[in-house]
């Protein structure tokens, strides 16, 4: 067993893991952060997307030991301390960007990464960016709408009203 320590959602956390323990299993099973989902477990669906040192990655395709010493953000770390939702979370709620909700944590973490380096994406860019996130409900239309609205709101504009 190896001791790993990382800063997760701003808090220092550590635990004992095997070399083969996946980051997603460390988050869910050792730390109880079950907001990060496991969908396909084969690097395709993106339900497990978290940020490691500021970049979105698939937590099912990274070993926990590889993230040792890193700064990790999960869906639980997006909202403000007072519970105010992150603009992307708020936009998903406002624009009905989810149906069953299983893919939602990964969709939101991917979208937040996109908006970190592209504050004003086109619809095409949003759809291209979601290449690695699969929604089995096929609810992409409202997911894309929510991300575009979040981008607008984060730029200081007013999001389009939900239809």
């Amino acid at each position: 067993m190896t001791k790993v320590s990382m800063t997760i959602n701003g808090k220092e956390m550590s635990g004992e893991v095997e070399g083969r323990t996946l980051l997603v299993d460390f988050l869910r099973q050792n730390l109880g952060l079950t907001g990060t989902h496991v969908g396909c477990d084969t690097s395709q669906c993106g339900c497990c997307v978290v940020h490691v040192d500021g970049r979105s990655v698939k937590a099912c395709t990274m070993l926990a030991v590889q993230a040792n010493g890193s700064k990790v953000t999960t869906i639980e770390g997006l909202a403000a301390a007072d519970g105010a939702l992150h603009p992307v979370q708020a936009a998903f709620r406002e624009h009905h960007g989810l149906q069953c909700g299983f893919c939602t944590p990964g969709m939101i973490m991917s979208a937040v990464d996109l908006l970190q380096h592209n504050a004003n994406p086109t619809e095409h860019e949003v759809r291209e960016w979601l290449e690695g996130n699969i929604c089995r409900c096929t609810g992409y239309h409202n997911i894309v709408k929510a991300i575009l609205a979040a981008a607008e709101s984060m730029r200081g504009g007013v999001a389009h009203a939900a239809e």
């Binding site: 979105s56 698939k58 690695g132």
Partner: peptide
């Protein structure tokens, strides 16, 4: 190559 998350690693 792959998707954005694969390209990040």
């Amino acid at each position: 190559i792959g998707d954005p998350q694969v390209r990040n690693l």
